[in-house]
Amino acid sequence: MLLEARGITKAFGSFKAVDDASVTLEQGDILGLIGPNGAGKSTFFNCLTGDLKTTSGRVLFEGADITDVAPEQRAGLGLARTFQVPQTFEGMTVLENVMIGAFLRTPHRKEAETRARAVLERVGMIRLADAPARSLGTPGRKRLEIARALATEPKVLLLDEAMAGLNAHEVRLAIDLVRDIHRSGITLVIVEHIMEVIMSLASRVMVFHQGKEIARGSPREVTSNPAVIAAYLGTRAAKAAAGHTPVELMGGPDL
């Protein structure tokens, strides 16, 4: 077991954003977290990365309890993440942004630069290495997020809506990149709104609705699950839609 969450609850005051959610992640998995807006998937995600403290429940990484471990130490253990709204280091070049990730594994500037260049080569941004990061548009920033996280040499990479805001063509390029990352042996957790992404990438899917897990299984299984359709479209629409395939209804895969 690489990463495990046991009975995670996160409450803001009396409101439970995540209510008793559990998940296990094996080496080589691509776990998709989906659900309508406000379903609690991002909150759950942030509990895994350590950005939010859990109200109750435990997070285990390679068998060790990391519930109270700070995000920077989780990064050291091999847990990397990207942000839904890119947190680009605006005052730096693209290369320097990636070097921040590379510095986790080496204190030497030259070595960090070499590794960062290799990562930029890998994600296809090497020509932009010396450009100021603030000059990047959304696709570039999203890709830079991934490059930075990769530079920390993670075992698990958590992607928080890494493809939101990209057009269909850019989404396809991003999917290729994620596949390539997976092939290199990195286990992935992806939070995603775009169904095409989940359908074509995830090996397992967990569906959130109002803070609770309502379904899990393969992408095919969950998208044909009536509870999932009802959560996305409402019960009436779900009944009306009985004749269509759920994938079509959720906007995939003809994107």
Binding site: E72, A75, Q87, F89, F103, A149, A151
Partner: peptide, 13 residues
């Protein structure tokens, strides 16, 4: 300075 949250996520103490 630019983003403490992102820096920490990349392992910066």
């Amino acid at each position: 300075k630019d983003s403490e949250r992102a820096a920490r996520s990349l392992g910066a103490p």
